[in-house]
Computed example of a mutant assay.
Amino acid sequence: MSTTSAHQTCNHPARDVAIVGLSSAVVSLAATIVVMAFSGPPLAIFGAGGSTFVAAISAGMNILSHIRRNA
């Protein structure tokens, strides 16, 4: 048995994508709650949730790809 071993980095892309997706869902729900608190119409509530989800997931994926590229 060798006393020296090579350091192996963990590569779990499915876990990272799941974290980004769940974080985006939480941000989207928060935006929906804020619009509902101000008595927004249903279309505004739906639009706020959807657009926030898309923005958060694309920002999260960009950050994730930047981290992967520099690691």
Rank of each mutant, 00 (worst) to 15 (best):
M1V: 11
M1Y: 14
S2K: 12
S2F: 15
T3E: 10
T4D: 05
A6S: 09
A6E: 12
H7N: 02
Q8W: 06
T9M: 03
T9W: 05
N11C: 08
A14P: 00
A14H: 07
R15F: 07
R15Y: 05
R15E: 02
R15N: 00
D16M: 13
D16R: 14
D16S: 13
V17G: 00
V17A: 06
A18M: 09
A18G: 01
I19Q: 10
I19G: 00
G21C: 11
G21A: 14
S23F: 15
S24P: 03
S24T: 08
V26F: 05
V26W: 05
V26L: 07
V26T: 04
V27A: 10
V27H: 03
S28A: 15
S28C: 10
L29R: 06
L29P: 00
A30R: 05
A31D: 03
A31T: 08
T32Q: 04
I33V: 10
I33H: 02
I33L: 12
I33T: 05
V35H: 02
M36L: 14
A37V: 06
A37Y: 12
F38R: 12
S39C: 06
S39M: 07
S39Y: 13
G40I: 07
G40P: 02
P42E: 07
P42C: 07
L43S: 02
L43C: 00
L43E: 02
A44Y: 11
A44L: 15
I45S: 01
F46V: 13
F46A: 13
F46T: 08
F46K: 03
F46Q: 02
G47C: 07
A48T: 13
G49Q: 10
G49L: 13
G50Y: 15
G50A: 13
G50I: 14
S51N: 04
S51E: 03
S51H: 04
S51F: 15
S51Y: 10
S51A: 13
T52Y: 05
T52L: 06
T52F: 12
F53T: 00
V54R: 03
V54F: 14
V54D: 00
A55C: 09
A56M: 07
A56P: 01
A56R: 04
S58W: 13
A59M: 09
A59N: 05
A59K: 08
G60K: 11
G60I: 14
G60Q: 11
G60H: 14
M61S: 02
M61Q: 02
N62H: 05
N62Y: 06
I63S: 09
I63K: 10
I63V: 06
S65F: 06
S65M: 05
H66N: 11
H66D: 11
R68C: 05
R68W: 13
R69L: 10
N70L: 10
A71D: 04
A71G: 09
A71T: 05
A71K: 09
